[in-house]
Amino acid sequence: MGKHNVTMTINGESVTAEVDSRLLLVHFIRENLDLTGTHIGCDTSNCGACTIMLDGKSIKSCTYLTVRADGANITTIEGVAAEGTNSHLQQAFHDQHGLHCGFCTPGMIIRSMDLLKTNPNPTEEEIRWGISGNLCRCTGYNNIVKSVQQAATEMAKEKEASV
């Protein structure tokens, strides 16, 4: 029932497709576009493994209809690194060992991008609340917090240098 044409920008590229009303955005991203960096964990908007950036805000793509994303600008983990260079957050997660198994990492990084945009200099508590919708089953939160702190510092330095 109900096919719809959608056009959206994903990681800088325009994508057009015909989709069912009920197609969830996470399935569109993973199965139609083969961008499998966005993960499916709980499928109930609890765990945050499916977090993507939609029009500049982190959202849980398991709880979003693809048709509603018509016209949207989306960034997935595949679009975070520019020109093959790690983003500050990616590099920080690498340096600080901010991942164990890595399953939550794409969601953690996208969520942290949104967090650092609204709050460039968060306290540890603000980071922990900021990523409260992203679960790490390996319980590697301490290093995840350190990673976000490192990225915040690096981003502040870069901003200062560019002024």
Partner: peptide
Amino acid sequence: IWLTADPSVRNV
């Protein structure tokens, strides 16, 4: 709001 769901859910 601080106690409602989590930041990504509150974005929507």
